[in-house]
């Protein structure tokens, strides 16, 4: 029960959903399917006067009808969603919202991380913040930061000869290369495994440093569409946010002047992402270097091909696609359950 005596309940049915979509649209907000929990506050006539959703530790779709904005319902909703997230073990929170709504969260102690003009704003709250997070990571890595380096973001699900080729290519041309492995565990290969395989597979390259990506690089917080596999207008806004975060925090803190990416002619989401990168990095005086994908027998090497071959138990093919380190792992007992999991599902990532 809230202090105002308004009805308060979870989103229940299609009718609620339709109402919520209309309600959110007047705040330039879009309802996203990727939510774990949605709370509605309703007036006496069962109309929505406030709403908010939660996906893991990300608060989204938060809005309050203008007539009720004096009542501090937004404070109440944010508090409520935080307590729900806390019960699930999250102590660090994001808000993904529209520029129109962003100001009202700053008064609640949320700090803006990045903004895609007229599209989306990401804010964070908690004991961890993005500046500290990457600064500490930087301090822990003993590299010569006086010289400009380059950055690469990879998922490596799993690490292939293609990834190796991209990293090696950069390492030959740059003084220093930092590789950030996406941390979110929505891929078949768990993060720890992916990170380990990248580290193992690049050990021989002395100027390459491999880091966890943290919750700030292409995570579902910032970039749900990447994980949702949708290809609509939202994708561009999210991609821009992600690129801005990479440029404004990671590249600045690690003194990186270029970002290397593999060419992505097929995947719509990824090519949209590369377009966003181009638009955001160049004005900041940063280079974007797109490398054609490594091919074998006229076909590009892709992690999805490795996964396909794994499903088919075709280790001859796999041996041609991945470096020795990855192959060794895939043949190990540890990899068995991952391969089992893989055989049971079809997914792009």
């Amino acid at each position: 029960m809230n202090p105002w005596g308004f009805t308060e309940r979870e989103l229940k049915n299609e009718e609620d959903l339709e109402k919520l979509k209309v309600f959110l649209s007047s705040f330039d907000l879009v309802y996203e399917d990727s939510v774990d929990y949605t709370i509605l506050i309703l007036d006496n006539e069962n109309e929505i006067i406030a709403a908010g959703s939660l996906f893991r530790n990300i608060l989204k779709g938060l809005a309050v009808n203008q007539d009720y904005q004096g009542d501090q319902l937004i404070d109440y909703l944010v508090s409520h969603l935080i307590s729900v997230a806390k019960e699930k073990g999250y102590y660090h929170y994001f808000i993904f919202t529209s520029p129109q709504m962003a100001e009202s969260f700053k008064y609640l102690g949320f700090n803006e991380i990045a903004r895609a003009e007229q599209m989306a704003v990401l804010l964070e709250y908690g004991n961890q913040n993005i500046e500290n997070y990457y600064s500490i990571m930087k301090e822990k890595t003993s590299a010569d930061y006086s010289l400009e380096g380059a950055g690469i973001v990879v998922n490596c699900n799993p690490f292939t000869n293609g990834h190796r080729y991209l990293i090696e290519y950069a390492s030959q041309r740059e003084k220093r290369v930092h590789v950030f492995v996406l941390e979110e565990d929505l891929s078949t290969f768990p993060f720890e495994t992916r990170l380990m395989l990248v580290r193992e597979g690049t050990k021989d390259l002395g100027n390459v440093f491999v880091h966890p990506g943290g919750s700030y690089i292409i995570s579902s917080a910032i970039f749900p569409a990447y994980f949702l596999k949708t290809e609509d207008a939202k994708t561009l806004a999210q991609a821009k946010l992600d690129v801005k975060i990479f440029a404004n925090y990671v590249m600045r803190i690690f003194n990186l002047s270029a970002r290397y990416v593999g060419e992505e002619p097929y995947c719509m989401v990824t090519s949209c992402y590369n377009k966003a990168m181009m638009e955001e990095l160049l004005p900041l005086g940063k280079k974007l270097i797109i490398i054609p994908r490594k091919q074998i027998s006229g076909e590009v090497i892709s992690a999805s091909h490795v996964r396909k071959a794994l499903r088919e138990n075709d280790f001859t093919k796999i041996a041609s696609l991945v470096p020795e380190t990855t192959l060794k792992f895939l043949k190990s007992a540890e990899a068995k359950y991952i391969i089992e999991k893989l055989k049971n599902k079809e997914s792009r990532h």
Binding site: Q72, D75, Y76, V78, S79, I82, S83, K86, Y91, L108, G109, G126, N127
Partner: peptide
């Protein structure tokens, strides 16, 4: 481990405490 209590409502506060290795860090 981590503990947290409170709200962001007016006249309240949220406090999060977690383990540390370097004495008291208060933000």
């Amino acid at each position: 481990n981590t503990g947290q209590a409170g709200t962001v409502e007016s006249s309240d506060c949220i406090i999060t405490v977690s383990p540390s290795e370097n004495g008291m860090e208060i933000n």
